[in-house]
Structures are given as C-alpha cells and as structure tokens.
Design a protein around this nucleic acid. Structure first.
Lengths: 219, 219, 219, 219
DNA sequence: AGCTAATCGAGACGGTACGTCGAGTCTTCTC
DNA sequence: GAGAAGACTCGACGTACCGTCTCGATTAGCT
C-alpha cells in the first residue's frame, strides 16, 4: 500500500518489457471520475462501478491500479489538493507580511471545493480504522499544510521576531484543527475567518510573553 | 428528522392513545446494541441485522424508530456522550486552577473510548452530506464541549484575570479543533497533550498582550 | 380446525355468558374483504393487514375468528360458492333432460367468477401440503359438485336408463376433473364446453355397453 | 418472459461476445437446488437464500437468471418433468395392449414424486394470475401428457379399432383431469386407479356406440 | 350501579424472506 | 499481457408480511 506516499499515483510498473503496457491516460481518467463522483454523491454513495462507467474503463483497470475504493479516493483527493495551490508562501520580510501574503494567495472557495472538503473529512474519518490509510492521508494532506506554516514560523524565528526558545510545534496543528472544525460544522473557510485566527490566536501566541516560565503544576 | 435535536432519542409519538404504544425499553436496548456493535466492528462493519439480534428485537422495531443505520448510530453516540460526563468544571478561584481541575477530572480514555472517537469521527463524515445530521451532531457534541470551556473563560473574565474586551470566541474551537486533529491522526488524547495545549497556546493567548491594537492590514 | 365443515363460518362461541359478544357483522365483513382482495391480487399477494383495513377491523378480530390466512380464504371461497348456485338439478324424467336442465341453470361466468376460479385453484394447490385444509376444501367444494352429479346419475339408474350394475363412481370426478383442467389452462367453462363433455364422454360411458365383461388383463 | 417456452431453461444470451459469459453449470446447479428445496419444504417454505446456499452460488447469480422465485421454481419443475420419462408408449398392436404397456411402463411414484406433484399443483395456482406462466406450464407439462395419449388413440383409429369419425379431443383431457383431481385431493396416482379409469371410462367411450347421432337438444 | 370479562380498532412486536445493490475477484474475448 | 465487459461470491440493505401481543375504549351479563 505504498500508493499514497508516491508522488505518482500509479503503483509499481512491475515488468516493463512483456505484454501491453498500461495506458497512462487511464490513471487520470479514473481519478477524475472518482473525484466527480465523490463531489456528487460523497464517499459512501460512490460506487466503483460508477467510477468505471464514468471513466469508460473496465473495473479491472481500476483494481489493477488501486487495491480498494478507499485508496483510490485518497489518491483522487491528493491529486485535487496538489493541483490547487502553490502552497509556498513568499518571504515578505515580516511575520505579519507573510501571513497577509498567504491570505491573499488563498484561493476563493467555490462550490466544488466545499463539497471536496466535506468529502475529505469523510475520508479522514472513514480512514480512522485503517491505520495505513490514516498515515497516508496524514502524510499527504496534513503534513503538506503543516510544513507550509512551519516555513513561515521558522523564517520569523530566524528574523528574531519570535523568541528562539519557544516550542511552536502546536501552532500549525492549531490552525489546521480550526479549519477541520469548520469543515465538520459545515461552515465556510474564508479569508475573514482565517484573519481572525491569525490576529486573535496565532500572533498572540507567537509574539506574547512566554508563559512556560510559570507553568501549571505538574503532578 | 427532528430526532437528533430531541433530548429523548425516540421520535414523535404520533397519536397517543390509539394502538399499542412503543415499548420504551426497546429504544435503549437498540441504542446499546448499536453502541456495542459500533465499538466491536466500527461503523462500516456494523449491520442492522446484528443490532436487531443483539437487542433481541425484530428489524421492524429498529426501522420503526430510525429511518436508517446512520441516524440510529448518531443517536447511539449522542446517548453515549450524554451518559459519560457531567462536564462541569468546578470554580477553583483562578484560571489556571480551573484548567488543572479540568485536567484532573478528565477521564482516562479506555479502549472503547478510543474506538468511540473513531466512530464518532466516522459519523461526522457520513453526516457531512446531510446538513440536518451535521447540525444535530454539532449541537449535541461540539456545543457541549464549547460551553464547558466558555464557562471557564467567562469566570476568568469576571475575576479580572483576562482583559474584559478580548474576543475569546475562537479559543474553545481552537481546543476542540486540536483534539479533532488528534483523533483524525489516530493519536491519543491524554493529559500530557492537553497540558501542552493549555500551557503553550491557551494561556499565552488569554494572558498575553492584546495584539488586536495593531492588526494586520485590512484590504 | 373444524371451521370448514361448519355451515356457519364462524367457530365455536365458547361461553355465551360473560364478556362482550362477538359482533356478528364482522364475520361477513371480513369474508367479503378477503374475497375482494383475493380477486384483486390473488392468494399470495393478499395480506391479512389489507383484509383488516378493507373490513375496517383490527387484525385481532380476524385472528380471533380464523387461525390463519389460508383458512380464512377457504371460508371466503366456500361462502362465495354457496351464495352462487342452487346446485339442485330438477328431475325432468330423463337423464338427458336432467343434463339439459343443469346446463340451462348454469350461470354465466362473469369476470369475477373467472378470477375466483383461478383463486380457487390457487387455494387447492396451496392447500396441498396441509392435509386438513385439503380435506376441508374437498368436503366443501368438490363433494358439493360430486353429489349434485351423483343425484342425477342415481335417478337415471332408478329409471332404468343406466344398467344397474355399473360402477359410476368415476363419472362425477371425470366431469370435475375436466373443469379443473380448464381452470388450470385458463380456459372458460361455458355451456358449449359442458355440452361436449356430456355428449362426447358422459353419455357414451353411461349408455354404452359394459366393457368390464372383457377387462384388460390383470397381473 | 420467454424463459418458460424455451427448451433451454436459461434466458437470452444478450451479446455473445463481450464480457464473461454466464456459467452454464450454474443454471443446472440452481435448478437442482431449487428442486431439492422444493421437495423438502414445499413452495412457501423454500427460500431463495437457501437455494443460493445449496447451489453454492450468490443470490445475484440466481436473480440474474430468473426474475422471481416463482419463475425459477416453474423452470425447476419443467426440468424435473423433462428428465423423468421418455413418455413414448410402444405400439403393441391393439388399443388395450397399448394401455397395458403404458400402465406397466408407468413409474412407481416415490415420495419425492408425491411431493413434486403437490408442488407442481401449487405452482399452477401461483401461475393462475400470470397468463404467460400458465401458458408455459400448459405447454410444457399438460401438452406433454396430452400428446402421449393422443398417439395411442391415433394408432387405434388407424388400426380401425375406433370408428374414424369420432371426436376424441376430450379424451386426453379427461384422463389428465382425473389425475389432477387426485393430486388436489391428495390421493395417490397408482396403477390400480389408472386401470379403473381406462376400463370404466376410456374404453367405453372409445369403443361404445357413437351417441352424437342423437344429441341433446340444442337451443 | 358496580364488577367482570370478552370484545373492538389500532398498531407495535419477533421473526423471516424478499429482491436490490455494492465491493472486490474472475473469466471471457479483443487489441 | 492490458483492455472492456460483465458474471461471480458474499453479505448488508431496507421493505413487507405473518401471527402474536398490548394498549385504551366499548359492551355485554352478573351481582
């Protein structure tokens, strides 16, 4: 189940010599069919038969590439995610500037994106029983967001805007977690919300005094 | 589909008088059977037939009360949540004291709880297409956690520990969101983690200087 | 299961003293409802719930009178049968005259009758696993027809039209069997057919020479 | 619903190139499983699930071939009937000799056959609402018996044993009808009964004087 | 009049079968 | 060999029906 960690969605091409080679167009066709179905029906109501029909492909071709519906759908979402954003935030010279730049670069959510978020959540949770799937999603989606934020923070530390000793490891997760909650509650993730997160939570944490000098009692 | 918003899990009693009334014991029996099955197998592998057999009940009795597996399971989880904790945090006289008390009152997660969280999350996702279901889960589970935290914060404001003008509306969601993320990632929610959230994020935000006096530029 | 042999469809009225007496109107209402449903849907598709609703009666009232759907339907058909024909063939003074009279007295089959025959057959066959039910149908429906024919034959024997020693026991069954076959094959039972049966089969058998003097070899 | 009239029980093979062809072994396996269950439990108590399990087949494979339980069972009975007897009666040189030969060739009814007859009858009834089904049963079962008897009669006419002008069309139906009645009444169809039918009814009709010269009055 | 008991309509109950649908595998023929 | 097509097993789904049971509300006879 190494599918998710590969940048390339398709799996090993075992013996490149003998026989008819796989049609590379089919990978994309299947992923797009999965994505469309996902947006229309959600994970549960999406059937592999429908994906195959949509992609004008036999079910064999699908299962030759992905071992299960769950994993196909994960790859479909990863593809969607990768195609969506540059992810890299430019260095503007200041922490707040970086956040402002990120906000401005943030794409407007259209309807499909909203549906996609819902689906994504669905996947995360459907995956919660399957540790490999969870790990894969974590690596591909959550880590992607985490590292983007981490980059911004590290630059600020290097600039001296943030005290060097601070443990900032929870900050990215805080931001991601808040977004997750918005998705769960069915609320939109827009610039307005993001700005409040930055102003009311992130900047106070980063720029405020270090509270760890007077920690709560430990047992 | 007003089922979820009722405190009482069973639905409308259409014409009270005519005909044999529903056996109220069955509601509980079915919910418990659903919960047991949920913990053992997870949402996908749980079958309505099994629930009926476990509860020593005909399938008709189940479908007379809940129109689908998903909605039954939602109610089962709501019941589980409600039965689990009073959630009220005692007033210790200080913000940090309240948090410490909450940490200590926090129940140890046993295996069933872990499974339950996973299931719960699974449900959130299954619900993401059904706005009523989402709303119900939100109202019953998320709001419950939110209000608990809000109480603690409001007490601190009244005591003068937190500056009165601060917008604290995001703080509860921040804490909940971080937990959600842990669940998604399959990591445990233990006291250690919670303490870090409080020390590294919550207290700095609450007790630090108000950053909103120098907000990021607004377009 | 003495239901079928009673002229009166309802069963024993055990203790005529205490308690509210059964509403005698319901017997007929239920039987008619059963009959209507039978004609509309056939035996299999007819449900006890529907009968109860049609008769504006609780299911309890039905099962208080008949122990099962099969037996209710049998009684419904017996009722229909009894209400339909005088059955007695007048003595015209000659065998052929009696048959002619029977033919003329024979009611025209309307559409409902056709459906009824089909249902009747259905019942006969549905009953074939239940010996008591079979016996009841036999006694109530087949024997009714048998005895009518037997009367005509016995009169002819007394008149001397038929040789006294002949074994005529198969003749009624022959006539009934031919009708049964018509029903099975979905063909109408009309006067034309009946006349052919009488002319081509019954009269030759009754009036022809006794073949039993030269029987086929017995092993 | 042309299934029943086909000699071959399975239905149309829609496009005989594309896709995996239906496994022809399954047709037989399912039919035999149906037959076994039919004999053991009768029509009502026979379940499609049991048939599928017995045949080691998924329910899908059953419903892909037959649209309902009733129609599967009809085909199962047709198969049973076809496999049972060559039905041809040898030419012994005389009418009575032919009948004697038929009697001797007549297989002893074992228990399964008795059950089968009952089931068969049950099917006729279930079929009585569905004219196509009725027609199919007629063609496959009744006509088979009719033609066998007709052969014997035609030979006798050719030999001159029976007057050439006689309308003998009712004779086969008379014999079949009597058997049908026996089945309905739950009585055995044995050689003794059959001999009485031949001696007391069939031979008198065939060899006696033609009564049609003095028919009953026509209106 | 009160008491007892069986009735009534209504509808919930356990159980069981129905016919459908989905996941993942296998098998045919064609390219 | 890969490709489309579609049959295969397995198992859950939600529905419908049977025959029973349980409500509150009648409706009699008996005290």
């Amino acid at each position: 189940m190494t599918a998710f960690t590969d940048t390339d969605p398709q799996h090993v091409d075992p013996s490149p010599g003998r026989g008819r080679p796989r049609d590379p167009n089919l990978d994309a066709a299947i992923l797009h069919a999965a994505l469309e179905g996902l947006i229309e029906h959600g994970y549960d109501r999406l059937s592999m038969d429908e994906i195959a029909v949509r992609a004008q492909v036999g079910k064999g071709a699908v299962y030759r590439r992905w071992p299960s519906k769950a994993e196909l759908v994960v790859d479909a979402i990863v593809m969607w995610r990768l195609a969506r954003s540059p992810v890299a935030v430019p260095d503007t010279g200041s922490l707040r500037g970086d956040f402002d730049a990120a906000l401005e670069a943030m794409p407007d959510m259209d309807e499909a994106d909203g549906a996609m978020f819902a689906v994504l959540l669905g996947l995360l949770t459907a995956a919660s029983r399957d540790s490999e799937l969870t790990a894969a999603l974590d690596a591909n989606l959550l880590e992607l967001a985490r590292s983007t934020i981490r980059d911004v923070l590290e630059r600020a530390v290097r600039r001296g805007e943030i005290e060097p000793g601070r443990d900032l490891s929870l900050v990215p997760d805080m931001m991601i977690g808040l977004n997750l909650l918005r998705i769960v509650a069915g609320q939109p993730i827009d610039r307005e919300f993001f700005r409040r997160v930055i102003d009311d939570l992130v900047l106070p944490v980063l720029l405020g005094p270090d509270q760890t000098t007077t920690p709560s009692k430990r047992e």
